[in-house]
């Protein structure tokens, strides 16, 4: 008993050592800077990490966007001002990409503007429906939760190749159709069907992640609210619209922001599945940036940097609007 107490004391003394060692330094800092500045001292390690890993790349990107040549080292890159931005914005009519100097950038942007709302709506709708189903007391609930989460663990390339084998001309889906006497469809050859499958595959691949978040949100809603609604004989639809949705709003907002950011960043699955085709029907903005900066030779790092900064700016504006709306509604 005494030995245990001694051991606990020793451990506590050992644990306090770093704090004791830092104490004089903190006292010194507090004397020198004053109490009001002390929070900054504590924030410095985190701020340094943010500066190094988040802000520095933005500044480097900014530098690349105003310099030219296919060289990587800053000293080898001449300053060209806003030429890359001018090239991107050089358009006769912004609604007609074929009048733009960099038509593929505008086609990619246009595709992204259609893809994101469609995919986000489908993703949240299906994830919410799945979460509600999985929140019910059904048999094999654990098994189904695992099944829906399973695709999240797969590499995007594996997802894309799997679906390519399913959807290609001689793929599994067409095999199934012909076995029941239906005609084959070349799913990835037509712009509309390729776009549909692009949305479908990305939703399938990521839905599990959002389902889990929504499921956690659903489980945090107090049971007694539902019980009270049941006693009042509220219909299931009324329960959903008046209880579930309002109480799930904070979770939905997080899911919505994460979903939009992930949707705009969609690249790997579509690059492998369609390569941006047919033509340019499924090329999204990140693929355009990748191709210009890394796949097409000579590599145009400057133009890729300019395009990615524009994308970053759009995403930031969008996120700020979201946060503003959320604050306005006290979410």
């Amino acid at each position: 008993m005494r030995a245990t107490a001694a051991l606990s004391g020793a451990i506590a003394a050992l644990a306090a050592l770093p704090a004791r060692a830092v104490e004089p330094v903190m006292h010194g800092a507090q004397k020198a800077l004053g109490i009001k500045q002390m929070p900054w001292v504590f924030l410095i390690p985190n701020l340094l990490a943010v500066l190094l890993f988040s802000l520095m790349p933005v500044f480097i990107n900014l530098f690349y966007s105003v310099t030219g040549s296919d060289r990587l080292y800053p000293v080898d890159r001449p300053y060209i001002g806003g030429a890359n931005y001018e090239t991107l914005f050089d358009c006769g009519n912004y609604l007609d990409p074929s009048t733009c100097s960099r038509d593929l950038f505008w086609r990619a942007l246009g595709n992204t503007l259609v893809f994101v709302p469609v995919q986000v709506a489908a993703m949240i709708g299906i994830a919410l429906f799945t979460a509600i189903c999985l929140n019910r007391d059904i048999r094999g609930r654990g098994f189904f939760r695992s099944i829906f989460f399973f695709p999240v663990m797969l590499s995007p390339v594996v997802v894309a190749l799997t679906w390519q084998w399913i959807l290609q001309r001689n793929g599994a889906l067409n095999g199934l159709l012909t076995s029941i006497g239906l005609n084959r469809v070349n799913w990835l050859v037509f712009p509309d069907s390729a776009f549909f499958w692009s949305v479908f595959v990305t939703v399938w691949a990521h839905m599990g992640f959002f389902t889990i978040i929504l499921l956690a949100g659903l489980q945090s809603i107090p049971r007694d609210v539902y019980e009270a609604a049941k006693m009042d004989a509220a219909s299931p639809w009324r329960v959903f619209t008046r209880i579930t949705l309002p109480m799930l709003k904070p979770t939905l907002l997080v899911v919505f922001i994460l979903c939009v950011i992930r949707s705009v960043q969609t690249f790997d699955e579509l690059y492998v599945l369609t390569g941006g085709g047919p033509g340019s029907a499924t090329i999204l903005i990140v693929q355009y940036i990748y191709e210009v900066g890394f796949a097409i030779q000579p590599r145009n790092f400057g133009l890729a940097a300019a395009a990615s900064l524009l994308l970053g700016a759009v995403l930031m504006i969008f996120t700020l609007i979201q946060l503003r709306l959320a604050r306005g509604r006290n979410l």
Binding site: N186, L188, V189, A194, Y271, T274, G275, G276, G277, P278, G279, S280, A281, T282, I283, Q287, E291, A295, I296
Partner: peptide, 8 residues
């Protein structure tokens, strides 16, 4: 050539 896009 029809179904695939970009420089893939």
């Amino acid at each position: 050539w029809g179904a695939v896009g970009g420089s893939t």
